[in-house]
Design a binder for these strands. Structure first.
Lengths: 404, 404
DNA sequence: TGTCTTTTTTTATTTTGTTATTTTTTTTTA
DNA sequence: TAAAAAAAAATAACAAAATAAAAAAAGACA
């Protein structure tokens, strides 16, 4: 139950001002007062504390508009640094960044197929050490981790997932004990959504959904500018949405799950099946004359790029299935934007175009008119960016500033 | 951009205290201080203002626990009254209620098939007059309206819907001009969800979805205790979710929409089709010997109650389709609870049981374990209750109290 | 140079919550 | 039964932080 007292009031104003500086830098005290409707003395007072905490610096003088030149304020990028991790199944990647979200270094570590939870934590530590070694930053505000699996955001625990045998792994506690700085843990797709919200295509979009299509399919849902978790952090399971009432059996027990149609493996399976059924394709040649060792997703989209009709059909159908699932989502949640990410999207112009065609054909009304579908531009570090954004989010939230 | 100032701080505390009184009445000042962590003088001070505004009354003395007996406070039910409307296609129903949500009177007005928007507003006015005439309340806090169609909640405008030719009808402005008290307008299913959240099965459930199945299918989504609208108020279009990729053509242009399987009309259509195909059913007799004029939904569930295998099959299949759609929703949003409402549910034990069976078979993981599916207990006035709850919501929100 | 503008800081005031104290009322206990 | 203890509520003094008014600083321009 939030109650109003002086500390809280000040804390709200402090975070408001810090956010305004972040979003409008470089900006003068007078301009902040105008934007926030706070009075100039209040702004001066709070900016003083932010300067003292080294979160903000006075940069240059601005241009005069007929009077004294304003002293422009910016976020102090150098004082504190952030560490973001993308903790994946086969690879851990780490980045360091400044307070304004600029990446200053990166490092990768491969994960062997068979590891215990303790091994994995040790690999996370190595990744942090590796990226720290490459950076000359001294003071770190914390470590933010995006991780595949069911994550208890509040406790910082991997409940299950990532590797099959992992159960209740206290990632946050382990890393905090090791490094003595705050650690935040979040599901990878939701970290991605957070990254889009702060630095990508989700900026200034209150309601959007980030769809990640790769080995699995997940949705990161942002509603009213906040990442939505659902009860017990299980929202966004797009992969097991039914799109065909009488479709093929999925390993989850249901029929016609989206996962059976559009994951990387599903695309490969459907292509193989079509070839076995005798459909003509350049892929048959490539495989037979040893030009390709095995049927991979990369091979299929190469064939599609080369104009192979089977590969094109498969990828278009993939977009169609995905588009159908997204149309359902659009009618239920009516997001302003859908952001597509993941390896299938990054190498899948055919999938994306057919997806957009499908949505435009199937969705209707205002929900469609107000909608834009875009492809993520954050690149392969997106989840790690989301990781350190968890720290920024805390910093820029009331009562998150005093701790610095 | 919310900034902290004294009025806001006080307003937050005032609404906090008013809410605590509502939820824990009868309660003493000392107890409020303990619950809210506000200090006793602050509570005394604010309670004084609430007493003066007649929103709260000192009722009896409580039992002593070894010292002075506490003065117990309750919401003043008599000082202000509320009006709630369910503005439907064929009928408008109105209720009056006290500040604690007790209904004190009701009235109904039938809507002729052909009316203009102006006629309809006049009928709304008549409904309000009729219910006011039946109540001896003097002072009304406002009118809250739940209405079928696309509602712009902010402006209080019916954008389209209800009757086919209605476009941009300024309901709020019209009623405010007529009665001189605040009017709030909301979509009917979302009003329903709000009613459940305050007075029904959604109490203390942060994330739930209210499914209404009748002539159409809609979902009212409550996330983090707030009714979710989506971009441009179009969230919750459950009726046109695809559940069968190659299903029958819907009037919206897509194939296999849920609406084609589970609305009242769809149930009738599917039953008629089965009869025409020669399936044996008691319904055939009832219709042939003139015992029933026409095939209606009521007739079908009577037959199911009488054990008719065709009717049972149809209703069970209906539950199956609905359950499939809900499973998708559950995997996407992971709500803690699903509340079923509407006429098909109220007279559909067979539908509900098959729906629950389907969800339990198809959903999996934490999303299922943490989920409960219940039937609404608010009765036929639910939307009207949601209507006046719009006013309560405003009243119990910071800066909504000063206006009284 | 002098006046006008704009930005920033200073001073005094106001709002409102907090701490400490007092009053009122009741129960407990000697 | 009277004194002590305890709880609830009210009052007084205090403090935090915003606001209002005014002053100072710094520059523009005639």
């Amino acid at each position: 139950m939030q109650i109003g007292n002086f500390q809280w009031m000040k804390s709200v104003n402090k975070s408001t001002i810090l956010n305004v500086i972040r979003l409008h830098e470089p900006i003068s005290r007078a301009e902040i007062a105008k934007l926030t409707k706070l009075t100039p003395p209040t702004v001066t007072n709070i900016v003083g504390e932010l300067l003292e905490a080294k979160l903000v610096v006075e940069s240059k003088r601005g241009d005069s508009t007929g009077g004294r030149k304003p002293i422009l304020l910016t976020i102090n990028p150098g004082a504190y640094h952030l560490i973001g991790l993308n903790a994946g199944i086969t690879q851990i990647s780490a980045v360091t960044a400044t307070l304004d979200g600029k990446i200053t270094g990166e490092a990768q570590i491969q994960v062997p197929p068979q590891v215990t939870a303790d091994d994995y934590i040790e690999l996370l530590v190595q990744a942090v050490e590796a990226v720290k070694a490459k950076s000359e930053a001294r003071s770190y505000l914390g470590i933010g981790v995006g991780m595949a699996g069911l994550i208890d955001r509040d406790r910082g625990v991997l409940v299950y997932g990532l590797k099959l045998n992992f159960r209740d792994v206290p990632i946050k506690a382990a890393l905090e004990a090791r490094f003595g700085i705050p650690v935040e843990l979040e599901n990878d797709v939701r970290a991605l959504a957070l990254a889009e919200s702060w630095f990508g295509q989700g900026q200034n979009i209150p309601n959007f959904v980030c769809i990640s299509v790769g080995t699995g399919i997940g949705a990161g849902i942002v509603l009213d500018q906040k990442v939505y978790h659902g009860s017990f952090f299980t929202a966004g399971e797009l992969g097991h949405v039914t799109i065909d009432y009488d479709g093929p059996q999925c390993k989850c027990g249901n029929r016609g799950c989206l996962d059976m149609f559009v994951s990387k493996q599903a695309v490969i399976r459907r292509t193989r099946q079509a070839i076995e059924e005798g459909r003509v394709s350049v892929l048959t040649e490539w495989l037979e004359n040893g030009k390709a060792a095995d049927l991979t997703y990369e091979l299929i989209y190469s064939a599609a790029d080369a104009g192979d009709p089977l590969a094109l059909d498969i990828l278009k159908a993939t977009g169609g299935y995905l588009g159908t699932a997204l149309t359902n989502l659009i009618h239920m949640l009516s997001p302003q934007r859908i952001i597509l990410c993941g390896s299938v999207i990054r190498h899948g112009e055919h999938v994306v175009s057919s997806l957009i065609d499908t949505v435009e054909a199937k969705a209707f009304g205002q929900a469609l008119e107000k909608l834009t579908i875009v492809v993520s531009t954050l690149g392969p570090n997106a989840v790690a960016i989301g990781g350190f954004t968890l720290l920024l989010q805390k910093l820029y939230t009331p009562s998150g500033i005093g701790d610095v």
